[in-house]
């Protein structure tokens, strides 16, 4: 933190002599401690998953959602400062509604990412505001198929096959890189996502957590009916909804088992080695 004391980090919209905007970098730091959140873009949909640490036993299980529905076909997961995330979500919802009003169609994922990217970037330009302390992962689908974007506090956004942010992002990223996402089906991705969240959680093992998981899909019988009216509605046929509880629980069980087996193996190897040494 060589920047501290130089004065260039006191205000947004002021560059340091070596061309950095420290306020934005500090915002990125805020995200680095956020909940591990991942997005996977598969051939038939998108998955969002997040590790929700249980901060109090008094909280109702499943409450305080971190992944929000923006429109029928769109969901956003945020990691970092929760209230910043809520404001970001509200803006995304407004953008989506305004797109429907103007064009009588569902907003394409790329367009929402572009608008939200511009919105986040505007918060790096003025001394009266601070950047968003969140990274947002946008999952959705449109005529071009499933889409996944990640927006950083600087306003930077890229489209991804797989995205990870928050505390466990390094571990999560290296796990995602092993997947063949263009061949992966949504159902397989549910299991992978749960496993990745468990692997990424490894670092702070002692804390209890829940997995929150949603998907964007075209063929979920239950949700398709619940979410929409078909006749005359503005809708592109894709649904963002919670992954059914049973599926997540099953995936979590399998993930836990796989990780325990890994650990046992490692310990087994260690024990063998010790035996040999003896």
């Amino acid at each position: 933190m060589t920047s501290i004391g130089t004065g260039y980090d006191l205000s947004n919209s002021v560059f340091s002599p070596d061309g950095r905007n420290f306020q934005v970098e500090y915002a990125q730091k805020a995200v680095e401690n956020g909940a591990t959140t991942i997005g996977l873009r598969c051939k038939d949909g998108v998955i969002l998953a997040c590790e929700k640490l249980i901060t109090s036993k008094l909280l109702v299980p499943g409450s305080n959602k971190r992944i929000s529905t923006i429109d029928r076909h769109l969901g956003i997961a945020t990691s970092g400062l929760i209230p910043d995330g809520k404001h970001f979500i509200n803006r995304a919802r407004d953008e989506s509604i305004s797109w429907r009003r103007n064009f009588k169609e569902s907003i394409p994922v790329a367009s929402l990412a572009d608008r939200m990217g511009s919105y986040a970037q505007a918060y790096t330009l003025y001394s009266s505001v601070r950047p968003f302390g969140v990274t947002a992962i946008i999952a959705g689908a449109d005529d071009d198929g499933p889409g996944l974007y990640m927006i950083e506090p600087s306003g930077l956004y890229w489209g991804y096959f797989g995205a990870a942010t928050g505390k466990g992002r390094q571990a999560a990223k290296s796990e995602i890189e092993k997947l063949n996402l263009s061949e992966l089906s949504l159902l397989q991705a549910v299991k992978e996502a749960a496993r990745i969240i468990y692997v990424a959680h490894d670092d702070n093992k002692d804390k209890e957590f829940e997995i929150e998981m949603t998907w964007v899909t075209r063929d979920s019988g239950k949700a398709t009916a619940a979410v929409t009216g078909s006749r005359g509605m503005i809708w592109n046929g894709w649904v963002h909804e919670d992954v059914p509880r049973e599926l997540v629980e099953e995936a979590a069980r399998e993930a836990k088992k796989a990780i325990e087996e890994d650990d046992d193996e490692e310990e087994g190897q260690k024990a063998e080695k010790m035996d040999e040494d003896l």
Binding site: R72, S96, G229, D242
Partner: peptide, 8 residues
């Protein structure tokens, strides 16, 4: 309907 979905 869309706003009704927000709370999930």
């Amino acid at each position: 309907l869309i706003k009704e979905q927000y709370p999930a």
